[in-house]
Design a protein around this nucleic acid. Structure first.
Lengths: 193, 193
DNA sequence: TTTTTTGTTGATTGACGAGTCAATAAACTT
DNA sequence: AAGTTTATTGACTCGTCAATCAACAAAAAA
């Protein structure tokens, strides 16, 4: 009994299942069947909605980035003052929704994919550009001409903290990561030269 | 015309070819045949010396780590004063030999592998532990009780700078990366609290 | 000189998995 | 009622690749 309008529902389920399965297996070597099974459908249907496994994963990462972007915008709107804005970005980056084991694992695999798949590289560049731009704007009133270089090191530090999360056992500790990033920020801001 | 004592030569060639091929392709989806071909032998011989593809890659990463470790020890021996030691570690981390496109690509894939292969996870933990320990020892005279936390953020920053290198086009710029890390160090050291 | 050890490869096996296809069915349209 | 669009899947194709094997060659040991 095929109900109509299934497409968005199925796609959404597949996108979520993709993240979960990649997180579970720890690599892109998940079969489409595994993903489809977790999403409650046949692999043929998954191929019907997304042309290929790669499309599926790219859609999943677009989804992750969209959620992150929305969270940043929300936090930014509620933030007060320049420093509040930087803190808002950092907090969003390590929020419970984004800083999850499976999501971090997906990011890591996405990074690998960006080395060989142009579309992944493009997406990653867009994401990095947005993060950088957000940081620079927020830092400008605090650091003036040094805003770009601080944004660069903060960005790298964020990526590094994500990376380190992968190795840890136990639940993700976003608060600790935020603390490290904030201290870096304070330290950089206290540098007068 | 089998010359004897080939084993170390073959293994060495395979280890190097593994890094190059992974760097070229950008993922672990390199075939053993490709690696063997680049190393100038048949895939069967590669399997003869290393039992499996995974063993080959793990040996390659052990090799990378060994070189890195030797470089750090050398730089540490020649360094003067505590700050000189921290600088030596950072410079070694981004030296021309270690901070190369293909090597960075290999690291990235190694990180992914560490999520699912215990031996890779173990190796990575050993490496991180050594780096951390080196940093803490060097930082102790400079930062006292704050040495561990500074070592942690410096370590994450180093990883992040490696990660960012992957996306860049053009040749690797180790000097720029060292500069970012050094500025972070200065900033952290100037924080008195 | 026979035997063992070491080096070497072409050919083959065996498994696995992405993507396709044909078929079935229920809804909507005309 | 006939035709079209959307949903859905089991079965199948087709390519790829890690790993193994059988066989051959040369050096070293016995």
């Amino acid at each position: 009994m095929p109900k109509l309008g299934m497409e968005p529902i199925r796609k959404d389920a597949l996108v979520k299942a993709t993240i979960v399965e990649i997180g579970r297996v720890g690599s892109l070597d998940v079969t489409v069947s595994q993903i489809a099974k977790r999403a409650g459908m046949s692999s043929a249907l998954a191929h019907h909605y997304f042309g290929s496994k790669e499309d599926m994963f790219l859609a999943a990462m677009r989804h992750v980035m969209t959620l992150y972007g929305a969270e940043v915008r929300g936090a930014l709107a509620a933030a007060e003052g320049p420093e509040g804005r930087v803190r808002a970005i950092l907090r969003a980056s390590f929020s419970a929704g984004n800083f999850r084991r499976d999501v971090v694992g997906a990011w890591l695999n996405f990074w690998v994919l960006a080395q060989s798949v142009p579309e992944a590289k493009r997406l990653l560049a867009v994401y990095q550009g947005r993060l950088r731009s957000n940081l620079v704007v927020a830092l400008r009133p605090l650091a003036g001409a040094r805003a770009p270089e601080i944004a660069a090191s903060l960005g790298a530090l964020i990526d590094g903290l994500y990376l380190r999360e992968v190795l840890k056992s136990g639940p993700a500790d976003g608060a600790a990561a935020v603390a490290v990033a904030l201290r870096h920020l304070d330290a950089e801001l206290s540098l007068k030269s």
